[in-house]
Nucleic acid binder design. Sequence first.
DNA 1: CTGTTAGCGCTTTCAC
DNA 2: GTGAAAGCGCTAACAG
Lengths: 349, 349
Amino acid sequence: MRIRPSGQATLADVARAAGVSLATASRALNGGARVVGPDLRERIVEAARRLHYVPNAHAQALAGGTTATVGLVLHDISDPYFSAIARGVIAGAAEHGALVTVGTTFRSMERELEFVRTFRAQRADAIVLAGSGFEDADYRAAMHDELDLHRRAGGGCAVVSEHDLPVPAVLPDNREGAADLARALVEAGHRRFAVAGGPSCLTTVRHRIGGFLDAVAACGIPVDDVELLDHPFSEEGGRAAAHELLDRRSRATALFCVSDVMALGALDVLAAAGVAVPDDVSVAGFNDVPLMRRLVPAVSTVRLDLEAMGRCAMELASDPATADARTVRFPAEVVLRDSTAPPVRQEAP
Amino acid sequence: MRIRPSGQATLADVARAAGVSLATASRALNGGARVVGPDLRERIVEAARRLHYVPNAHAQALAGGTTATVGLVLHDISDPYFSAIARGVIAGAAEHGALVTVGTTFRSMERELEFVRTFRAQRADAIVLAGSGFEDADYRAAMHDELDLHRRAGGGCAVVSEHDLPVPAVLPDNREGAADLARALVEAGHRRFAVAGGPSCLTTVRHRIGGFLDAVAACGIPVDDVELLDHPFSEEGGRAAAHELLDRRSRATALFCVSDVMALGALDVLAAAGVAVPDDVSVAGFNDVPLMRRLVPAVSTVRLDLEAMGRCAMELASDPATADARTVRFPAEVVLRDSTAPPVRQEAP
DNA sequence: CTGTTAGCGCTTTCAC
DNA sequence: GTGAAAGCGCTAACAG
């Protein structure tokens, strides 16, 4: 971008115009306490208005003030999962009078680290990581260092989802939620499952699949019989998973997609292929993103209060009392809707 | 938020550790050109790494560097309309190596102005206004001043949607799109319309309603017969509009909601009331937000390439050649889906 | 209450 | 090439 020719009124200009000292002007305009005589204050404020004075936030920050800025790292702002979390973070920040800077990574570990570094450079008051963690030792070590440095410098931080990092975390009950869903499905009579999951380097994915499989196993169903469809953690990935399901003429009666967005993609493909949901196959997602209940059939899923999670993360990241690695669990609640039903197709083994 | 105890390695520390001057360290680390001897450069970079040096963005900005920051003002990040635009803006900014700071206004003119002021304080390279403009003289005057000052200080800016401000603008064809939709509906045989619109202080709303009514009139249908449902520009508003429609036992055969989100609310209420769409009443929205085509019935609407619009706004705001008030129109394309059909109910006058 | 005086951490002329 | 020095605009001790 371009260089900025100053041309802005500075505090010094205001002070001069009002015939007071720089310090007084500073106190009157940006200092909180009313330690300035009302008469002077008036004059200064008036001068400031006349000159269209706007404080230079960088100078303020540099001089030891506050930045009132929080950095938010997420995968993609137009993904409803993240925009809901972002809404919570932004709302929480607003209550602190802070603004949120958003970095979108599109699931790149490198970009994620880079954003954290940038936020550090900006001396963000707080940094919130909203995406799932990666199961990668180097990444984790690097992120650990980065956040550690940030906190040592007085900054706060928090993560949403498991990151296996010693920082405050908002932990959705991924494991339990997926397990509950599995149990509900088994109870409904399902025995043959397919699971559409994103790359296993994502902690969230691992936990959801893990919880699901454990519960299935606990119900006495051989885990090996569960078909694992390994595709990207995205709508496109959901599409691919459905295609695979179709191609291999799967006999699964229920498909668990580890995220709603994947379920969306899968449902699209299934519908196009003339596969009836839930009659031919039940489909469930995870997150309960707003639109899931509006689709036909309404999609069964596991509800997470995304906005509250974002808000909570913001709170954890800004609360000095949270300097230690505190953790807040968020319950995941199974929501059975029309996309799941007892299996109607009874097949012979 | 809290005061930040420094505790960070500074450039001076790095310079000392590497045994060079501050200036040299600066050039080696943050200066672009390779004007530093490779040997020294190496030593400096090494020292920086060892000390976990992160440049202080505020100091850089203050010392005359660039901020690489753009401020984005919008209504609500979790509204798919805005999150799509935001995605475009963020992507565009990323190409410039800039980060986006998001201010959400929830349609408050005051908050909007306040955010612009804050972005000015942050010396944002560019400011993008994504919400609809308000039809309010005071607001417009204030915003005009604010943006003017910002541009005079060398900053760029752009607005999405009509704001009647002398700044670069991305203009969706609201008027034409709504008119096209009206014509399509009339062609399908509709004669009795209802229009669910948000507060008329929003320019976007006025234009869409205006375009719709004009076209209807041009088709020889008395505009006075069109029922105007004046409710908030939100899903809740759409709900209210549908309730009103129901309460007054409207005879309209087609309901035009000025935004998809309103249509969403209206459809929900209609469905709950047992009103069949499109058999009892056709419903159309505006924007073609991602989920509209996934609903059942798929919702007719007017498509806008939201992400491209966001990207374009970012471009306009960052391009110095755009210092004058340039304008880019975006076509709005009618997309007829299953929620609209010829009226089946023929009523006697 | 108000004014003076130092910096905050960095970029940038200028000299060398 | 590299170093020395002068700010960028503001806040925060200190004095008065």
